[in-house]
Design a protein around this nucleic acid. Structure first.
Length: 818
DNA sequence: CAGTGAGCGAGCTTCCGCTTGACTT
């Protein structure tokens, strides 16, 4: 018999709260949502005013059963899920699933896990807020409708198994549009002028050792203009025209939210967003940090107080500046605190290096957020050029007068500024002072296209648009890559020439052509061909969903539902009817989307050459498919090439394979690209090219090398070479020990059998046994279902939702035995 | 595994947001 049962969402939270509440309270966790729309079909009754069909999620049946038992036993049940839309819905679903009274069950909320906050919550229970629950139902139903109506359109009009959704499709759109901005970017070059001077002592006229670095605020468009300017410096005198000193300051950043933590961990530690979340989860479970999925920058009062003490004792009272940060983001729901160390007095925590580094980052950011501004003194110096009054050099100086929070932490920036102006201390200077010129340089610089999104930069953008939630940022990025809409870039870059003009101290003008590497980009998000085709199709037909403001506008309506000023089913109705009409129209009227583009004409045959999507990916086609004419020729596009940018020359290049390299053992050596990548072929033997090797560049010697190497590899794995039923039967060394390979069937040998002496009869027995009882492949990742299971596989009783009708038709097995 | 790109049809795929483990190969 228990007095009080409290249900929260996270088990780690349950443990902490149980300690605060004492022995009259048992605290359990629901592990997030426990019910969801049925996954058998749409899960929404369109004929009954969008009535949702909820079911207990398969992996939650155990939890629900346990909670049900405990709640029957308890005198009082307290629903303490998070204080936001989803949390309210979880409470409601719990009440429904556990059979609790919706009107009398106590609902409590807190958004920080501190003893006073919990005790206060217990003092102030309320009822489940049905309006807020309805707002969540609207959100859920809308997402299901959008996802489950759009995806099938893609299956029919683009390719099977694709997906679309309110969040993922817009994420892909951002990446596609950015890539197009880069493609259409016109690089312009201009000349940036920098100069070094020595100050001259006003009394003694001595040239001093100190160096003053200056630059011209304007840039020159042409080399001629730059040269002309440099020449005007030859006989000029230089002197200080003006010195302006201004105070400045820098403020610390707010404590971490999920999104800012992902960004900083990416910039400072090089973690992917998934890695950041995994490491943070570990720290959270160990009790080192507060909850890591949050959109709030708020710190609890006790935390602010603790941090203040920590700052004063470590750095002194001058460094302390306790303050509250306001959330910039309108869509924030602030159910939790910001991400901070649970105990700020512990400066280091974590099991391994990656945990320690992330904790360190969180600790510093948290401390810094409650510290004083850094105070700077900024100096701007103007330098006169006696023979060229149209221009003035400028020098910038920055002196840190008080470091403040910079003692602990400085936020990084996304764009590594190319020629960052070195702002340091300036030498002592005075107005009217003469300067001695050293080298003056005019270097050609190129304008840069916008940067591709990194994972974390995409998260930042999505958050700004109010799209997605802290718990979904990392999964969304995984999804768009899993669907192969987006890839991580691996661009090597190429050389580019630029001009460097130097006016030497001796007034000689030196002109040099130098080279730099440009266009190198690794690990950034790049759209694939299929990503672009799907994006364009959705954008053309479903502009409402693809609008960056779509989420914001439905969020406004969800807010109205939460306020009780809008009825959720009416909101869904007014969205769904026109939306569904568009789906129908698109299915009926739109062409299959292939991203087809006419590249030009084949110089050999005179046929048209197209770039387009085929069943097996992006390809180039020469000639048209007609009823009677010759078949078109096809070639697969190479990775890194795009349907929308590939040139005719590059396309023709693709048809240079298959290529004959020479002969060996009276057979031709061919090189080609197959379904599984590039390979070399001799007779009936195939050899995959090692990764990174270019089949177009492959030479005969290297091909022979590869062939011999691979043959040796195979030989070293061969233990016995036998024959059975007219087909070779081999005993091979494999990753999981010795195995039999025969007729595309692999059988691992039992441990007690010697692979060197096993007889053919024994092998056949093992093969027959395997055929009679093949191991069942289960597991949800089993995308690559083996196609060769000819022996009737006793499929495990179909997991869910196989209607009886389907089951009976399936139950009569089609014997395909040979 | 290895020169696919036609068409038909059955049966499958799919969303977003809450939470953690249990699983591969």
């Amino acid at each position: 018999m228990i007095k009080n049962l409290v249900i929260v969402e996270s088990p780690a939270k349950a443990k902490t709260i149980e300690k605060f509440l004492g022995e009259d309270f048992v605290v359990k966790s629901s592990y997030g949502h426990i019910r969801d729309l049925s996954d058998n079909g749409l899960g929404i009754d369109l004929n009954n005013n969008f009535e949702p069909d909820y079911q207990i999620s398969a992996d939650k049946e155990k939890v629900v059963a346990e909670l049900k038992k405990l709640s029957k036993d308890a005198q009082e049940v307290w629903l303490a899920t998070d204080e936001d839309r989803e949390g309210e819905a979880i409470s409601w679903h719990l009440a429904k699933a556990l059979g609790l009274n919706i009107d009398s069950t106590k609902r409590i909320v807190f958004h920080e896990i501190t003893k006073p906050a919990i005790l206060k919550a217990i003092q102030n229970p309320r009822k489940i807020d049905q309006n807020l629950v309805n707002a969540q139902q609207a959100r859920r139903v809308l997402d299901r409708l959008v996802g489950f109506e759009l995806s099938p359109v893609l299956w029919k009009k683009v390719k099977p198994s694709l997906s679309a959704g309110r969040v993922q499709s817009v994420a892909v759109k951002l990446i596609v549009e950015r890539e197009r901005e880069i493609n259409s970017f016109n690089t312009a070059s201009s000349f940036k002028v920098t100069a070094d001077f020595h100050p001259i002592d006003e009394k003694t006229n001595q040239i001093q050792a100190a160096v003053l670095k200056a630059e011209l605020p304007e840039r020159f468009k042409t080399q001629e203009q730059a040269e002309e300017f440099l020449k005007s410096c030859i006989d000029s005198n230089f002197k200080i025209l003006d010195i302006e000193v201004k105070p400045g300051y820098k403020s610390p950043s707010a404590p971490f939210t999920t999104s800012t933590l992902q960004q900083e961990a990416s910039r400072k530690l090089g973690y992917s967003v998934t890695r950041t979340m995994q490491v943070a989860q570990k720290l959270y479970e160990a009790g080192h940090i507060t909850y890591m999925r949050t959109d709030s920058v708020n710190l609890s009062e006790t935390a602010v107080e603790d941090i203040k003490k920590q700052v004063i004792s470590h750095y002194g009272p001058n460094y302390s500046n306790p303050k509250k940060y306001a959330n910039k983001n309108e869509s924030a729901q602030e159910a939790h605190e910001a991400i901070r160390p649970t105990y700020i007095s512990i400066p280091s925590a974590g099991e391994d290096d990656s945990e320690k580094r992330l904790y360190d980052l969180i600790w510093k950011r948290t401390i810094a957020s409650q510290m004083s501004n850094a105070i700077l003194e900024k100096t701007n110096v103007k330098i006169e050029i006696s023979k060229n009054k149209n221009h003035q050099f400028q020098a910038f100086g920055e002196v840190l007068k008080f470091d403040g929070f910079l003692k602990v932490y400085l936020e990084s920036k996304d764009d590594e500024t190319e020629d960052e102006d070195v702002k340091g201390m300036l030498p002592p200077l005075s107005v009217g002072q003469n300067l001695d010129k050293m080298d003056i340089q005019a270097i050609e610089r190129f304008s840069r296209p916008p940067a591709r999104y990194s994972e974390a930069a995409l998260v930042k953008k999505l958050e700004e648009l109010g799209i997605g939630r802290p718990s979904t940022y990392a999964p969304t990025i995984t999804t768009v890559q899993k669907r192969q809409y987006v890839e991580k870039s691996e661009l090597e870059g190429h050389e580019r020439k630029f001009q460097a003009l130097t006016l030497k101290k001796n007034n000689q003008l030196d002109v040099q052509t130098q080279t730099e590497i440009t266009g190198k980009d690794k690990g950034k998000l790049v759209p694939t061909n299929i990503g672009m085709v799907v994006n364009d199709f959705l954008d053309a037909n479903f502009s409402q969903i693809m609008d960056y403001n779509f989420t914001a506008s439905v969020e406004k309506q969800f807010d109205n539902i939460a306020d009780g000023t809008q009825v959720w089913k009416e909101m869904i109705g007014s969205f769904y009817l026109p939306f569904h009409q568009t789906v129908d129209d698109t299915l009926k009227n739109s062409e299959r989307a292939k991203g087809e583009r006419l590249l030009g004409v084949d110089p050999k045959s005179g046929d048209n050459i197209y770039a387009k999507m085929g069943r097996y990916g992006a390809m180039i086609q020469i000639g048209e498919l007609t009823d009677d004419g010759p078949k078109p020729k096809y070639a697969k596009i190479r990775s890194g090439q795009f349907l929308e940018t590939i040139t005719l020359e590059d396309a023709l290049e693709l048809f240079k394979l298959p290529k004959e390299l020479g002969e060996m053992e009276d057979q031709k050596i061919l090189v080609n690209i197959g379904r599984f990548g590039p390979y070399v072929q001799v007779g009936k033997e195939f050899f995959s090219l090692p990764k990174g090797e270019d089949p177009y560049e492959l030479k005969l010697d290297r091909a022979l090398e590869i062939i011999l190497e691979k043959r040796e590899d195979k030989l070293s794995k061969l233990i016995q070479d036998l024959e059975f039923d007219g087909k070779p039967l081999q005993i091979l060394k494999g990753r999981f020990g010795p195995y039999i390979s025969w007729n595309k069937l692999n059988v691992t040998l039992p441990k007690d059998v010697d692979p060197n002496t096993i007889s053919l009869e024994e092998c056949v027995k093992l093969i027959d046994a395997k055929k009679a009882n093949p191991t069942v492949k289960k597991g949800k990742f089993g995308k690559a279902a083996p196609k060769t299971d000819d022996a009737a596989a006793p499929k495990k009783a179909a997991p869910k939702k196989t209607t009886t009708k389907k089951a009976t038709t399936k139950a009569s097995p089609k014997p395909k035995k040979k």
